[in-house]
Design a protein around this nucleic acid. Structure first.
Length: 300
DNA sequence: TTCATTTGACCTCG
DNA sequence: CGAGGTCAAATGAA
């Protein structure tokens, strides 16, 4: 960790201010856009997605700048788990700030996290596995990944991948934490899925409250779903009763089945709140596609 | 030799 | 106190 010279500090501070002001402006634009939604074909320069990318980029840059400034201030030490490599670090940049003891870290909050269910682990980014853990009541172990460029570019993105269904309908539940600030991606990957940032119509809900929330808000919803763990079967109005062996699969089915009705309401509602305090986020189209394949595809 | 993965230890949090 | 998240030494692959 290097000490920044005064002139460098001033430049960083100026840049930090610019980034924060830009982030605020873009957020205001995004707010206007959400209050006055445009047509579905709108892809102008001020699209919600574009603004979201700019805002996230602005905050990422701001945090990096703030980190550089704090490196030179003993009063503002950032926890090691949030450290970003400064430009003048040498060999020591291969590792974060010296850890006093093994496992000395701050457990992350669930802020800025979202989940996707996909048939593959691949998402177009370079990840490095740093751990694997058997999770209670889960059929498969959970794998932990961090961005390959954590140390060379200070990218703090991480993800957890948990297999939730075996072949032939193999599925992985991937939870992402933080956004990539690195520039390197696997451009040639056939599985370059634009997971970052979250796509439109992202749903957010507490897993345990899926059924009550949806049915409270949509009493006419034709879907009846139970989400309790260890339930041996769940109801599906489309295909009758489906046997479900594991709790994880039960949860997944519940998620899938609530997507369709909620999706329509999200699209039609202009007052939908997008929360960043997420337990489970899903890209609806993917989930609905999967549901269609599984509920309808095999019966035909 | 370098880099990625595996795996047990260690730590935080609820 | 137990479950889950991260670290880092050992090991394997390229």
């Amino acid at each position: 960790m290097g000490i920044l010279r005064p002139e460098k500090l001033c430049a960083n501070r100026k840049r930090l201010m610019e980034e924060l002001v830009m982030g605020r402006d873009k957020a205001a634009q995004l707010q206007n856009l959400l209050e006055k939604p445009t047509g579905p074909g709108d892809s102008g320069p001020a699209s919600a997605e574009g603004l979201l990318v700019k805002i996230l980029g602005s905050f990422s840059t701001s945090l990096s700048l703030l980190k550089c400034a704090c490196d030179s201030c003993e009063l503002c030490q950032i926890p090691a788990s949030f450290q970003v490599v400064s430009e003048d670090s040498g060999e020591n940049s291969k590792r974060p700030a010296a850890k006093e003891r093994r496992g000395c870290y701050k457990r992350r909050k669930t802020l800025d996290a979202w989940t996707k269910i996909l048939p593959t682990m691949e998402d177009g980014h370079a990840w490095r596995k740093y751990g694997q853990k058997q999770i209670l009541n889960a059929k498969f172990s959970r794998c932990y990944f961090r961005c390959t460029h954590k140390y060379d570019q200070g990218c703090l993105a991480t993800k957890q991948v948990q297999k939730i269904q075996e072949e032939p309908h193999q599925m992985y539940q991937t939870t992402y934490f933080g956004h990539h600030t690195c520039t390197n991606t696997l451009k040639n990957s056939q599985h370059t899925l634009d997971y970052d940032p979250p796509q439109p119509y992202l749903l957010s809900f507490q897993l345990n409250n899926i059924t009550s929330d949806v049915q409270d808000q949509h009493p006419s919803c034709p879907i009846s779903v139970k989400t309790e763990c260890n339930k041996e079967e769940i109801e599906c109005n489309f295909s009758g009763k489906l046997p479900v062996a594991a709790a994880a699969e039960s949860n997944m089915w519940a998620d899938m089945l609530t997507m369709r009705s909620a999706h329509e309401d999200v699209i039609s509602s202009t007052t939908t709140t997008i929360s960043h305090d997420l337990e489970m986020d899903f890209l609806i189209d993917e989930c609905v596609d999967f549901q269609n394949d599984f509920c309808f595809g095999e019966g035909k």
